[in-house]
Structure formats: C-alpha cells, structure tokens
Design a protein around this nucleic acid. Structure first.
Lengths: 351, 351
DNA sequence: CTGAAAGCGCTTACAG
DNA sequence: CTGAAAGCGCTTACAG
C-alpha cells in the first residue's frame, strides 16, 4: 500500500494525495475529504524513508537524551514535551546510551530527519567541540554550559554545579561536619563531575576543612550498585567520615544502603547529601537532603530559547539556572555535636 | 556528500561503492580498500532513508520497549543486547511510552526498517489481537503470554503472575497476616495486573482470608508518586491492614514512604511485598521482599527462540519462566503475633 | 486547484 | 569483479 494506491483508489494524482496527507493549503476541500477517507479506510501510513529522503525540512524538533535511565533527564523530557506540545511543536525523543556520541547522532539526524531544532539533554563538551560544526539548525544544551565553545547556533542552560557543590559543603560544615567524603565522577559527563568536585574543593579550602582528594574522593558511575561498591571503598580508606556528598540521588541511595549494611545509620551516624532532586529523593527512607535542579526552569528556558531562535535568527544565550538545596532527613550533626542550624526549610540559592 | 561523491573521488561506480559499504563479497580487495579509504577520509555516512527505502531486509533485530522508565525492562534490555551481540546480531532498541501502541509501531518498523525479527518487552494483548496480523517476521513477546492469540510468528515467555501473586499471599498468611491490601493495576498492561489480582484472590479464597476487592484493592500506575497517593487512599479505607502487596518494586517504595509518613514502620507495623526484583529492591531501606522475575532466563529464552525461528521456520512457543520469592527486610509477623517461618532464605518456585 | 515529471540517495538484478 | 540503469515511495517546483 503506497501513495500510488491511494491515488488510484481516490481518483486523484499522487501529487494531490501527498498534498492532502501533508495538510497543504492549495487543495480543494472535496479532494482532501475524498483522499483522507480512502486513507482512513485503507489504514494507510506513508513511508517515512521516502518522505524524509525527499523532504527538505521536517516540521518538528528533536530531543536527544544522553542516558536512558537518567531520572533527571526523564523528568526534563516530560516537561519539555508538555511545553513543546502546547507550543504546537511536533517532537521526537531520541534515547542514547550514556556513553554514546550525541553529536555524531545529531549530525545523522540532520542529514536524515532534518529537524528544525535540537535539544540536547546532557552532552560532552569535547564531542561538541570537535563534531558540532556541521550542525546548522538552532540547538540547546541542557545541564551543561556550552558558552566556552562559541558556536553561533548553540545555547545552553545549566545549574551552577560548582556553586551547588560548595553550598552542600557549607551546609555540612555548618552542621558541624569536618570529615566529608565525596562520591563523584561519572566519566560520561566528566565536566559536570569536575565542576562539582571543584566546588567541594574550594568550599573546603575556604572553610578550612581538610579535603584530601586521593582519600576522600571516590569516582562512581550513575547506578546504585556502583555507588554501593564505591562507598565501601571510601569507607575502607576513611572510616571516620561523618558525612558523604553523592553526585546524584541514585548514587546517594546506593551509598545509604552500603552505610546501613556496615552498621552506620543515616543521619544519626553519618549524613548523606544527594544531587538532582529527582522524584525518588522524596520517597527514600530517609528522605534525601539534596541539590534540586530546577527542572521546570531548565525546560522552559530551553524551549523558549529554541523556539525563539527557530523563528528569528537570534544569537545563542548561555544561562545559569538557580538551584535549591532541599532539606530532607539524611543530614544531622555529627554524633555528639550540637546542631547549630537544625531547621528544615529549603534554602534558596540564586546561583 | 553522497555515495556519488565517493564514487567520483574513488574512481569507481556507485554500485561498487555500495558493495564496499555493505561488505558485499563480490568485490576486489583493491576496490574495497580504495573506497573505504575515501569514505574514511571524507567521514562519509550513508543516508539511511535511501538505504532502507530500497533495501528489502535489514540485517538486525529490533527490541521494542513499552515503558521508557520501566526498570525491569531496562534490565532485560541490557541482557538482551549482550546476548544478541555475542550472537553477532545487530540490534536496535526502540523506546515507547507506556501507553503507546507497540503493535502499530512494529508495523511501521516492518514497513520502513524491515528487521529480521522483533522482541517486544511488554505488550497489550488486545493490540496484538487486532493489529499483529500484518507482521510476518518472527516475534517474541516478553513478560506476557501470547499463547491464546495463536499467531504463527509470535512466541512468548512470561512469569506466572497468578502463581507468584498467590505465593506472596501464602507467604504473608504463613507469617500470620489476614488483613492484606493490594496495590495493583497499571492499566497499560491490565492483563498482567489482572493475573496478579486473580492470584491474590484465589489464594485468599483457598486460605480462608477475607479479601474484599472494593476495599482492599487499589489501582495504581507505575510511579512512586501514584503509589504514595494510592496507599493513602487504601489506608483511609482500611486502616487496619497489616500487610500490603504492591504491583512493582517502584510502587512498593512509594507505598513504604506513605506508610512511614502516616506513622507506620515497615515491617514492624505493616509488611510490604514488591514485585519484579529489580536492582533497586536490593538497595531500599528496608530491603524489599519481592517476587524476582528471572531476567536472565527471560532474555535467554527470548533470544534463543527468536534466533532459532529467524534461521529456520519453526513454530512459536509459549513458556512460563520460574520466578523466585526473595526475602528482604520488609515482611514480618503482624504486631503481637508469633512469626512461624521467620527464616530468610529465598523460596524457589518452579512456576 | 491539479497533474506529469524530476529527483531525493541509495540497492540490486542484469549484463558484461 | 564492475558498471549502467531501474526503481524504492515519496515531495515539489513547474505548467496549466
């Protein structure tokens, strides 16, 4: 069943069928109705290979998600789709492995699907630096900053990871912690991990808290299993930690379980802070104290900017989106210490 | 940059370039080397629209995942990809929304991508019944049974959901529970939920445990947030429950948090059992008692059967894969009751 | 408003 | 082993 069959069955030419199928304005109401009736009756679906092979531009925008199981991205995608839909924009979501090359993939997409714009959820700046040049449609990178790259068609919106990490250290210090471990560094997005580590380092320095990276820092991928193992290694090296800052909420969960299994209760014996503030962080026991990235604003800024640049040829922008440090149940003063600021209200940061 | 440019640059015809690109055997080593050198140098990527438009059959198999954030499916996909890769099979994974039409999607895939076989992770039998007929390549449905459908190119492998649910009830009864709530029924896969509910019902009947569905059963989608709300509703109606069986581990987690927030500790005040046995269930606090579906065997059976049927034209098979009831930390005897079988070993069931 | 025709970038018999 | 040519199923100027 092809467009040719529909043409024959409806008594029109393939050109007119194509026009009807694509809601072209230059077509009589009568032809449209007749053709669409046949299409319906035959349950005809056009072949997208042929369509995209010929078509010079697609109607929709593409979302490229780097990390299928990344729960933060999952929440972002949901919000992005809502926003794009209410803006009348067709959207196609493409899920890539955490360690896939999103830029190569985007190039292929531009060749074969020709989207009007692309939203990247996560991205490796090195891949952009070396491979982004062939891409000419407006693009937005979310959760990483592309400002240093200077591409004329690439905006970016991100949380200030260094500031957020620093604030976590400050919170822990304020509660009285001075032996803090850091679980970080998913190598698929090492710039982000690096920024967070940098934030930890400088905050520790400023507060006069000792932070020996070779001992107190343990890299760890984005999974509970890996976080469990990494926490065990970290504890082996530094048994006297009173607090642990994990790169993500998922990681924090694996860490908390590891701590429990070694006889340390959270937060009574050791405090844990997560990162991302995904839905799950509100349901764990204990509820996580975490850096909540502002999914709503990231999504809104990304969509607004993308659509604006698709419409008019504006220069890209690079913005930092404020985060919030959310108080959960996973942080307390170290055993035997008074807790200066035990309150539970969320702290706002205008990073 | 097209195949024509490569032809010009290499001094061969487009036909020969195409042969080189597709590792066709009837081509001289010299031509292959020269052409691939040019391809490499130009970083040429063929246009898949054109390729698939012309090509009669693709080399690979497709995996269609119904439910992007379904963690059980995520584990299955990982295992399936390993198995297919070591069998030398190219694989493309397609993620669909939980409430998308996987059969329509598969039809489109067959038209446009022409895979050699399809693995469905999750599926609505009604959609298969009405829409599967046009699909002629070998297919396998995982986690649901398609035996009643009688398609000649559709095998299926599934856990015996009714038996598993019944065994959960038996476990709880054995521990002394008689007021059991059930959180179930994601409508995107209502057959599965229905089977689990049926298992609960018949087990209760057989054990003489009261089970009033209108009171003790609460439907709930696959998310912590929905589970939280559903648990609150259930508790409102039946404040005296001593145990809760959740449709999935994710649901169980939301339920546990809801129970804590209402002052009920798990398992001291109320027991909770999950379903699926995903990685997360080993990291929650408390660790979940849950029905572990055998991801390894589901994947192995699915791949073996699919590849066998792709090679030779064998009839489909429909098999039940044994599950295991895993003892975690979320089940205890009701407050004030002795616990007859407090042991922690996993119970094997040969479904 | 409609149709005949060219062509998107490939693959694949067919002929040599 | 290689090339000329047909054709996959669409879209889109172009002419009417």
């Amino acid at each position: 069943m092809t467009i040719k069959d529909i043409a024959r069955l409806s008594g029109y030419s393939v050109a007119t069928v194509s026009r009807a199928l694509n809601s072209h304005p230059d077509i009589s109401e009568q032809a449209r109705a007749r053709i669409l009736a046949v299409v319906e009756q035959q349950d005809f679906q056009p072949n997208n290979n042929a369509k995209h092979l010929k078509q010079q531009a697609d109607a929709g925008v593409a979302i490229i998600v780097k990390g299928i199981m990344n729960l933060l991205f999952a929440e972002l995608v949901e919000r992005l789709q809502e926003l794009l839909q209410s803006a009348g924009q067709e959207t196609a979501v493409h899920y890539l492995d955490e360690d896939a090359n999103e830029v190569t993939y985007a190039c292929q997409l531009c060749r074969e699907r020709k989207p009007r714009g692309i939203l990247f959820l996560g991205g490796d700046l090195e891949l952009f630096r070396t491979g982004f040049a062939p891409i000419t449609v407006p693009c937005v990178l979310l959760t990483n900053s592309a400002s240093e790259l200077g591409f004329e068609n690439l905006s970016s919106f991100t949380t200030d990871d260094a500031a957020a990490a620093a604030q976590v250290i400050e919170l822990l210090a304020q509660r009285g912690h001075r032996r803090i471990g850091v679980l970080g560094g998913n190598f698929s997005c090492f710039q982000i991990s690096f920024r967070r580590l940098t934030g930890c380092r400088s905050a520790c320095e400023q507060l006069g808290i000792p932070f020996d990276e070779t001992l107190q820092y343990e890299p760890c991928r984005y999974s509970m299993r890996e976080a469990y193992a990494a926490t065990c290694r970290l504890l082996e090296r530094c048994p006297d930690l009173t607090a642990l800052f994990a790169v993500s909420d998922v990681t924090a969960m694996g860490a908390i379980r590891a701590l429990y299994d070694r006889g340390r209760r959270v937060p009574e014996d050791i405090s844990v802070v997560g990162y991302d503030g995904i839905e799950m962080s509100r349901y764990t026991i204990p509820r996580l104290t975490t850096v909540r990235q502002d999914v709503m604003r990231l999504a809104e800024c990304g969509v607004d900017d993308l659509l604006r640049r698709i419409g008019w040829n504006r220069p890209p922008i690079h913005e930092v989106i404020p985060f919030r440090l959310i108080s959960g149940e996973s942080v307390a003063a170290p055993a035997g210490k008074a807790a200066p600021g035990e309150g539970g209200a969320a702290v706002r940061h205008d990073g």
